[in-house]
């Protein structure tokens, strides 16, 4: 075979193709053009796969929006809210345009009071005070900024609140539990008559309405589990654990020694395909790894391979089984 192109030159062209394919998914001419290019040299298919994989990796860049490095409206960044409100149709088009690329769906700033996600969805909601609420799978919140209070109720699910600093208190209600702050980043989850919170920035006071107890003072690095009856437990977690618990923002699940049972419970939050562990010993095995939350099958297969189990699929159920060992 004649080698007219170096690997580097192929990589250059492959990058152009990866971008084109992403931008012009619906262009029918593109597919035939691509076929011609790919047929020109067998090495090109590898280079294209690699470039597309890099682009896929860069999708996590969406999670950087509003972070310190990209927050200032300098030459390289523009204000997101201005873009959507001021940009009018263009802003909406931009928001719609990314829907196919990123799994984070966005909504324009409107004085709507209720936001919800379906199973497996992640939704970023910019609120009118500059706070950004990011809703995890199967989550519902109500927002009411009236009467000198920024009030949000978490009806179900889990949400990350990046609360903008303001003189008005920001209060999240989760059942009878109240979380009050002036500025914080925290994620709150409501489940089984309990509320859990992870504070990564600022401070939060937590209490149970009408329980007559003194508020619990939480600061960055604190994680707390508060029951509706007022019992609570506060722990301190390190940054690694914080990242693990917030991996859902980028559609991932990190496992760092959780049991199969715990991992399965996590996966089952995100997909209609439910994993069932049919063996007690298997359920208690510990697992480590990184997975996409929308790929329970990949997790089940990994468990099967590493822990000598079998995977049985039955409609929407993925059953993890293990022959009884003698």
């Amino acid at each position: 075979m004649q080698r007219c192109e170096s690997a580097t030159e192929i990589d250059d062209t492959a990058a152009v193709w990866a971008i084109r394919l992403e931008e012009r998914q619906c262009d029918p001419d593109l597919a035939s053009e691509l076929d011609v290019w790919l047929a020109g040299d067998p090495r090109r298919s590898g280079a294209l796969l690699r470039a597309q994989a890099a682009l896929c990796f860069l999708q996590r860049g969406r999670a950087l929006e509003g972070t310190e490095a990209f927050a200032s409206p300098g030459p390289a960044a523009i204000n997101r809210r201005k873009l959507i409100v001021g940009g009018g149709a263009a802003g909406l088009a931009a928001a719609a345009g990314i829907a196919g690329v990123s799994f984070i769906r966005r909504v324009p700033v409107v004085p709507s009071l209720h936001y919800a996600t379906l199973m497996g969805e992640v939704l970023r909601v910019p609120l009118q005070d500059g706070t950004v609420a990011t809703l995890n799978t199967a989550t519902q919140i109500d927002v009411a900024f009236t009467g000198g209070l920024r009030a949000v109720s978490l009806i179900a699910g889990e949400a990350l609140f990046e609360v903008a600093e303001d003189a008005l208190p920001f209060v999240v209600s989760s059942g009878p539990v109240r979380f009050k702050t002036l500025r914080t980043t925290c994620s709150i989850r409501r489940r089984n008559a309990k509320s859990s919170i992870l504070v990564t920035e600022g401070t939060v006071d937590a209490w149970v309405s009408k329980a007559g107890q003194a508020p619990v003072h939480l600061k960055a690095g604190n994680s707390a589990l508060i029951s509706d009856d007022g019992t609570h437990r506060v722990t301190t977690v390190d940054s690694a654990e914080i990242n693990r618990q917030l991996a859902w923002r980028t559609g991932e699940i990190f496992l760092t020694g959780q049991t199969v049972e715990e991992a399965v419970e996590e996966f089952n939050r995100y997909s209609a395909h439910k994993i069932l562990v049919a063996n007690v010993a298997l359920a208690h095995e510990k697992v480590v790894g990184r997975f996409r939350s929308d790929q329970p099958e990949a997790f089940a297969n990994a468990v099967a391979t590493t822990l000598q189990a079998g995977v049985v699929r039955d409609g929407n159920v993925i059953r993890l089984v293990r022959a009884t060992l003698r």
């Binding site: 860049g61 523009i78 940009g87 263009a90 931009a94 928001a95 345009g97």
Partner: peptide, 10 residues
């Protein structure tokens, strides 16, 4: 494009 999520056209 990648962080603010604007379209190529915009």
């Amino acid at each position: 494009r990648r962080i603010q999520g604007m379209s190529q056209r915009s």
